[in-house]
Simulated scan of single mutants.
Amino acid sequence: MLAVSAQASIPAAESYDDTDVLLTITDTMAAASYNTFEDDVESRVRELITLHRETDDPRFLGYAKSALQNSEESGTSEDLIVLSAIVDQSLHDFDSARTKLTDIVASSESKATYLQALTVLINLEIVSGRYEKAGQLCAQLSETDHPYIRANCQAQIKALTGDPERGYQTLSSRAQRMPATHPYAVFIQNTLGDIASQAGLPDAPTHYSRALAIDPTDLYARTALADWHLESGNFDRVESLTRQYDDVDRLAVLRAIAQKRQGLTQTNLMETLKQRFDEAAWRDSSLHSRDLARYLLDVSDAPQAALTFAYNNWADQKELIDTRLLIRAAKAASDEAITEEVTAWMENQGQHDHQIKDVL
């Protein structure tokens, strides 16, 4: 799920647990976190990746990138190369991430490093819409040694290439035997939520809620659940899920959309988001193009501008949420050429999505 983002995040490693404490990150805390593991680059970078996943604050990616660049080991340590690829993916440098991960998968003699590189690479290919390649990589996973990871991968690909109901049933059956303490429990619950949403099944919010119950810091599950309630008109639930997250663009945008749909046209949050996105556009930052496109389409009523950002985002990221957004923006902007391009791509993949059938 997430460049690490977008799709639900694959755990960066199985050797540490995410904290259950929700953090409000200040500049002082960020600096303190950066210096926590001064003598251990790998631990420091892992912690910074975790902090980024819990806060969506891109500064932590910058700190991680700097730490890797300043480390003499970063070009030789396989674990650091994998972490560098995770940072690259989070920064939307997919080509660099793909090259590093492919090299590790081909050459690593460490089972743990190989597995981590392979699972991250599979996620990257799925996010990029390269399903055939993802399937080939998925086949390298051992059913005996990695049954849950393999089942998750197979279900995602099956759902995205024509049979979400079958993918859901198979993965749901496997997940019932999975302990909540398993490192991939959150990831699999999020996958089940995504497939249920795609297939139009009523179980999507149940799975996202289970993911949040296991890890309250998981922004992917929180965002997906808030978005589901938004589209269901449950604005009170949107408010409760997003209220303390105005610094997280994707959650703040959902809250602003809920405000707009309740008849509010100018709120402090809407003004804050406008200033934030204006600054991002001035910096030419593409990290949150999806969030900006959603804001422009559903809050600012600027479909043509939304289409530009949604299309640029879709060039790299082809998760369901990206495709849905692009089609909605193209329809709102009356751009039949882009609508036809995206629907032709979906047909070529065999992909269908209950969430956009009413838009097409």
Rank of each mutant, 00 (worst) to 15 (best):
L83S: 04
K100I: 02
N70M: 12
S66L: 07
L121Y: 03
A85H: 02
I49C: 00
S66E: 15
L121Q: 03
E72A: 09
G135T: 04
Q69N: 12
N123T: 10
V120M: 04
F37G: 02
T113N: 12
I86Y: 09
Q136W: 11
R46P: 00
L115I: 08
A117Q: 03
K100V: 06
F94E: 10
S66V: 07
T36E: 10
E54A: 09
Q116K: 10
A67W: 07
L61M: 08
S128P: 06
A112F: 00
F60I: 01
E42Q: 09
K133L: 15
Q69V: 12
E42G: 03
M29H: 11
L83M: 05
G62Y: 06
E125Q: 12
V105A: 01
L137P: 06
V87H: 02
Y34C: 10
I86V: 14
A64Y: 00
A85M: 04
V41G: 15
Q89H: 09
N123D: 06
N123G: 05
V41P: 01
E54T: 13
R44A: 15
A134G: 06
R44M: 07
R44H: 04
S77K: 08
F94A: 13
V82T: 09
I104S: 02
K111Q: 15
I122M: 07
A134R: 07
L118S: 00
E54M: 07
L101W: 00
N35V: 08
S128V: 02
E38P: 08
G62M: 08
S66M: 09
N70W: 12
E125L: 12
T55C: 01
A112S: 14
E47Q: 05
I49E: 00
D39K: 03
S74F: 06
E73Y: 08
T76H: 14
D40V: 06
Q69F: 09
V120I: 08
G62K: 10
K133E: 06
N35W: 04
S107R: 14
S96K: 07
Y114D: 04
V82M: 02
D39V: 05
V105S: 03
V120N: 14
K65A: 11
E78A: 14
A30Y: 13
D40I: 13
Y63A: 11
E73M: 09
V45N: 01
S77G: 10
D27F: 11
S96F: 05
T113H: 06
L101R: 05
E47Y: 14
A139W: 09
I86E: 12
E125M: 14
S90P: 00
D95R: 05
